[in-house]
Nucleic acid binder design. Structure first.
Length: 531
RNA sequence: AGGGGUGUCGCCAAGCGGUAAGGCAAUAGACUUUGACUCUAUCACUCAAAGGUUCAAAUCCUUUCACCCCUGCCA
C-alpha cells in the first residue's frame, strides 16, 4: 500500500535530494491523542522506518495559554503504547533561535512591529473580496522596529498591545500572506519556560523553523494548512540560512462515521464529567480505545488499510471494527458468559448430579484450546437465547425445541416460568439421554447451539456495551454505555484476557474492575449473520 | 472570474495515455457443537458532467457542476 507522500519520498531519495529522511509528529500539548492522531503518527513513523529515516516527536508548545505538562506526559505514553520510538523535542527549546530569526527579518525590512489594536488589524486585513490596507506601522524604520520588538520582549507591552508582523503583501488573495502576525505579547507562564518569555511565536512562524532546526525533510500536516504553505516557504526563505529546507505536504485528516474527533467536544465531555475521563472506554482517544480493548497493532492495521490521500472522506466505523475483530479472533480466550442471565433447570437430573464436559475452542476447523468445565442441573443462559414467541428462523431455545448446550447435552425444553410481570424467570428442560457432546448416539438433531454457565461456579460480573458517545448534532448520548448483569464461570478469572464471550463479542477487563466488582468492556461485538 | 484544494462501486482507495487493483460492507452458497471464524461465488462496459485531442482517455485540453479550506494576536 503506497500513497502520494511515499511516492514523493521514494522520488526524493532516488534523485538524491535527500540522503536520509526526517519526519516528525508535532502535537500541541493541549489535549489527549485520539485515533485521528494515530493516522498521522503511523504515517510519519512507518515511512521513517521503511525508508531508514527517523521520526521525531516534537511538542509544538508555542501557546502557553492552552498547554499543560499533563498533556505532554499523556502524549508520550500514548506514543510509546503505539510503538513509536524516537527523540522528543520541544518547540519552546527553540525560542531563542526563533527570536534571532525574527530579528534577522526585521533587519532585512521583512518584519515590523504593529501597535494597531486587535480590531484595527482585523479591519485592515480586508476580506475574501477586498484587498487589505497597509498599517501605519508598516513603514517604521528598522531601528524603530528593533527597539519596539526589544520592548515587546522586555514586557513593556500588555497582552494585545503590539505584535510583530511579516511584511509581505496586504493585497494577496491568500489571507495568510496579508502581513501575518509572527509574534504576540503573552504575559502568561509557559509550562516549561515559566515567565522567561513575554512574546510567543505563532504557528506559521514557529513551525517551519522547528522543522528546519530538526532537519525535517518532509513536513506532513493536514489539508487545512494548504493555504499556509506559501507562508511556510516564505519564512524559511527570508528568515535565515537554514541548513536544510523542509517541504510541507498535506493530507486529509481522519474522519470515522459515528465518531466525533473534535478536541473541543472531547474536552467538554471530560470537563462536564459526562465521561469518566480521557480514558473512558467510550472516548475515541488512544487511552479510551486501549481501555476498550483495542490494541495498538489493530490501529496500525486500520491506518494501513484506510490509506493516505487528499480527498476529504469519512471512513466507515465497520472498517475499524473489522481490524480489531481480525486480531482478537486469533488471540481471545473463549469463555461462556450468560448475559442478562436466566436460570435453566434440568428436570431429569438430581441436585447432586454433576458432570465434566470438554469445552473446545474451534477456529477455522482447528481445535485451538480445550478446557474441562462442570455442568449441574442448574445453569444460566442468555435471556436472548430463549423466546416465548420466537421469530422466523430462530435457532435458539423455545418451548418443545431441542437445543444443544455447547459442549454438553442436547436438551428438550419442557416449559418455562414467568414472574408476575410476565418476565421469564426459569426455563425447564430435560436432558436427552446419550446426546453428550462427542459421544452422541441419540440420533436427535438440535436446531441450534447455545452457551451456558454452571450455577455452582458462576460469579457475577457486569458487562459494559457501548454506543456512539455523541449523536449527529453533537449531543451527549445517555445510552452510550449500557451496563448489564451477567454470570461468568470463575475459571475464566484465571485469564487476563482478551476474551471472546461466546456468540456475543470480544471483551476486556475494565481498568476499574476489581475482584469484588468485576467489570468487562465490550471491545466489539461479533458479526451477526442472523437475518 | 477572490485564492487554494478535492471529485474512481454503499464506505475507504489503487490507477500517472493502452482498455477499471485491493480492503470494508453487502448478497448467494459451502462448512460449522460460536447465526463467529474459514471457504466459494457475485458486486463500476464505467471513473462528477459535457465537449475536444488521439488508433486508444479515469488518465491530456476546454467548459460546467458539486463539495472542502482560507478574513485568530489558535494550532
Amino acid at each position: 500500500m503506497s500513497n502520494f507522500i511515499e511516492e514523493i519520498i521514494i522520488n526524493d531519495l532516488k534523485t538524491g535530494k535527500y540522503k536520509n529522511i526526517v519526519l516528525r509528529f508535532p502535537p500541541e500539548p493541549n489535549g489527549y491523542l485520539h485515533i485521528g492522531h494515530a493516522k498521522a503518527i503511523l504515517l510519519n513513523y512507518s515511512l521513517a522506518k521503511k525508508y531508514n529515516g527517523i521520526c521525531n516527536l516534537r511538542f509544538d508548545d508555542t501557546n502557553p495559554s492552552t498547554e499543560d505538562n499533563e498533556y505532554v506526559k499523556a502524549i508520550v505514553e500514548d506514543m510509546k503504547w503505539l510503538g513509536w520510538n524516537g527523540d522528543i523535542f520541544f518547540a519552546s527549546d527553540y525560542f531563542d533561535i526563533m527570536l534571532q530569526a525574527a530579528i534577522r527579518l526585521i533587519k532585512k525590512g521583512k518584519a515590523y512591529v504593529d501597535t494597531t489594536s486587535y480590531e484595527g488589524i482585523k479591519l485592515m486585513r480586508g476580506d475574501l473580496n477586498t484587498k487589505g490596507t497597509d498599517s501605519a506601522c508598516r513603514n517604521f524604520s528598522v531601528e524603530k522596529n528593533l527597539s519596539l520588538f526589544q520592548d515587546m520582549q522586555l514586557g513593556k507591552f500588555e497582552n494585545g498591545e503590539a505584535v510583530l508582523r511579516a511584511k509581505i503583501d496586504m493585497s494577496s488573495p491568500n489571507m495568510n500572506m496579508r502581513d501575518p502576525v509572527l509574534y504576540r505579547v503573552l504575559n502568561i507562564a509557559h509550562h516549561r519556560k515559566g515567565d522567561k518569555y513575554k512574546v510567543y511565536p505563532l504557528y506559521d512562524f514557529a513551525h517551519p523553523i522547528e522543522d528546519a532546526i530538526e532537519n525535517v525533510t518532509h513536513s506532513c500536516c493536514s489539508l487545512e494548512f494548504e493555504n499556509h504553505r506559501p507562508l511556510y516557504d516564505w519564512v524559511l526563505a527570508e528568515s535565515g540560512e537554514w541548513g536544510s529546507i523542509p517541504q510541507q505536504y498535506e493530507f486529509a485528516r481522519l474522519n470515522i462515521s459515528g465518531i466525533n474527533l473534535s478536541k473541543r467536544e472531547l474536552k467538554k465531555l471530560v470537563v462536564d464529567k459526562l465521561v469518566s475521563g480521557w480514558d473512558d472506554p467510550r472516548m475515541p482517544t488512544l487511552k479510551g480505545f486501549r481501555r476498550r480493548g483495542y490494541t495498538a497493532s489493530s490501529l496500525w492495521d486500520f491506518c494501513d488499510k484506510i490509506g493516505v490521500a487528499k480527498s476529504n472522506s469519512i471512513v466507515d466505523i465497520k472498517m475499524l471494527e473489522s481490524c480489531i475483530r481480525d486480531e482478537l479472533n486469533l488471540t481471545a480466550k473463549r469463555v461462556m458468559v450468560a448475559i442478562d442471565p436466566v436460570e435453566l433447570f434440568i428436570v431429569n437430573r438430581s441436585d447432586k448430579w454433576k458432570e465434566t464436559v470438554n469445552f473446545e475452542t474451534v477456529i477455522n476447523s482447528q481445535v485451538v484450546a480445550s478446557e474441562k468445565i462442570e455442568i449441574s442441573n442448574k445453569i444460566f443462559i442468555d435471556r436472548a437465547d430463549f423466546s416465548i414467541d420466537p421469530p422466523p428462523k430462530y435457532k435458539r431455545m423455545q418451548k418443545n425445541g431441542n437445543i444443544r448446550l455447547k459442549s454438553a447435552y442436547i436438551v428438550h425444553c419442557e416449559d418455562y416460568k414467568l414472574d408476575k410481570d410476565g418476565r421469564v424467570i426459569q426455563v425447564l428442560c430435560s436432558i436427552i439421554e446419550n446426546s453428550k457432546s462427542g459421544e452422541d448416539i441419540s440420533g436427535v438433531k438440535a436446531s441450534g447451539v447455545i452457551h451456558w454457565v454452571n450455577s455452582q461456579s458462576a460469579v457475577d460480573i457486569i458487562v459494559q456495551q457501548f454506543n456512539n458517545l455523541l449523536d449527529e448534532q453533537g449531543v451527549f448520548n445517555k445510552k452510550s454505555v449500557i451496563r448489564i448483569n451477567a454470570k461468568m464461570d470463575k475459571y475464566a478469572l484465571t485469564h487476563s484476557g482478551p476474551f471472546q464471550f461466546l456468540r456475543n463479542g470480544f471483551y476486556c477487563k475494565d481498568a476499574c474492575s476489581s475482584p469484588k466488582n468485576l467489570i468487562f468492556n465490550q471491545t466489539v461485538g461479533l458479526k451477526d449473520g442472523y437475518k
